[in-house]
Simulated scan of single mutants.
Amino acid sequence: MKRLAVVTVGMTHSGKSSFAEKLESRLDNSFVLDQDNHAAFINTYYQKLQPKNGTNTLKHSITDLLTDYAIVNTDLHFITCSSNLVKKGRTYLLETFYNKELFTRILVYFDIPHDILKNRVKNSVRNTNIFRGDYTNFEQVLTRQINENYLTDAQPSAEEADYLFVVKNNDEVDSIIKEIIAIAEK
């Protein structure tokens, strides 16, 4: 039986982490690999090593190490939680780690309207210890993501993975989780 590699895609505050935690609690033999946790760890203990600008190579290295370790040393299903808004990054993740011979690859795209996201970040109480550089709040992150989203191919396509689920409203989460569990049981 193949393991699942569930990869969440979406802007900040779209519901990726909540979805991942809920799926993990219902999908036996699974774990969440969340890059926000890696960023918080680095900022708490290794701030001086943090790259000042450009790609966050330290955070990505930690994610790569944990992913490789879990692939080799466990039989767990993966729930990868990060924005994955750029197709190049998703392709790297899916092709480098989640080989289609070993994994059933599932993308869950959170296509939540911008006005809802703006309201969520405005009222956010999430810890900002995941930021680096000039960011001080999630409103700044969302503004950047919205602007970049218009310039890139952020929306995943069905050809990228074995399954693509699109969440346009967080009320759809439970039914999508049920479908993912059914895929795992095949």
Rank of each mutant, 00 (worst) to 15 (best):
E95C: 08
L94D: 07
F110C: 03
Y98L: 06
N149V: 00
T91K: 15
Q155S: 11
E160F: 03
Q140K: 04
P156K: 00
S175Y: 13
T104G: 03
I79Y: 01
L94R: 08
C81D: 15
L164P: 03
K87C: 15
I176S: 07
F97D: 06
P156G: 01
N127R: 04
G133Q: 03
E172V: 07
K122D: 09
Y109F: 13
S82F: 14
V121P: 01
N127A: 11
E139P: 01
R90V: 04
V167H: 08
S124M: 05
D134M: 12
R90E: 01
I106L: 03
K88C: 06
L142G: 01
N137A: 00
L164T: 05
F97N: 06
C81A: 13
Y135D: 08
V173N: 13
R120M: 04
R120Q: 03
G89Y: 09
K88I: 09
R90S: 05
D171H: 15
K118N: 12
T104M: 10
Y92G: 14
I112P: 01
R120E: 04
S83N: 08
D115L: 12
I112H: 07
R90G: 03
Y109H: 15
T152F: 04
T104I: 14
V121H: 02
V167Y: 08
D174I: 11
K168T: 15
N119A: 13
E172R: 13
N123R: 08
E160L: 02
Q155P: 12
K88R: 10
N127F: 06
F138E: 00
F103A: 09
D162H: 05
Y163R: 09
D174Y: 07
A154K: 08
N149T: 08
Y98W: 12
R105P: 11
R105E: 05
N127Q: 09
S175W: 10
L164G: 03
